[in-house]
């Protein structure tokens, strides 16, 4: 499985505006809603998670993994991809500012492990991330995330 199997262009936004971290998480949540992964309530839950536990979701330089716990607001496991026009601050000591918000919803604790494994591979590839940061369309993001692209992202 690769991330391109999990994402459709409707769940991807590039060069998106965001006034602050809440706005960025709200926009990433709206993408989940658009493809039927979760309802608006889940977006509120993702924001509440950061308010309660802090910006730990900024798990790598420039990258936030917005998520909350499995809840009735989650319809199926899935992710969205929000690349920001201008990075925003989440208040993380080391990894701010954030240019990519990946929103994640899961139905339980292990039904999405294949998805997480694909995501780990992408987020661990700093060259690929640098190319993804410049992507100018959802189609281009999907192309970069698809397996046929491997080795050709120069």
């Amino acid at each position: 499985m690769t991330l391109s199997d999990e994402l459709s262009t409707d769940a991807i936004a590039v060069r998106a505006p965001a006034t602050d971290w809440r706005d960025a998480v709200r926009r990433a949540g709206a993408l989940l809603t658009a493809v039927g992964v979760a309802t608006d309530d889940y977006t509120d839950e993702m924001i509440a998670t950061v308010e309660k536990l802090g910006p730990y979701i900024v798990l790598a330089p420039g990258v936030a993994l917005a998520h909350s716990r499995p809840s009735p607001a989650v319809q199926r496991a899935g992710i969205s991809w929000l690349q920001l026009a201008e990075p925003v601050e989440f208040g993380h000591e080391k990894n701010d500012p954030v240019w990519l918000v990946v929103a994640l919803a899961a139905l339980d604790h292990d039904g999405h492990l294949g998805l997480m494994s694909s995501l780990a591979a992408v987020l661990g590839d700093t060259d690929l991330l640098a190319t993804l940061r410049e992507a100018d369309s959802p189609e281009r993001v999907l192309e970069l995330l698809s397996p046929t692209n491997e080795g050709s992202s120069s």
Partner: peptide, 8 residues
């Protein structure tokens, strides 16, 4: 939450 960052 036990589903995202900790799994990675």
């Amino acid at each position: 939450m036990g589903i995202g960052t900790s799994v990675l």
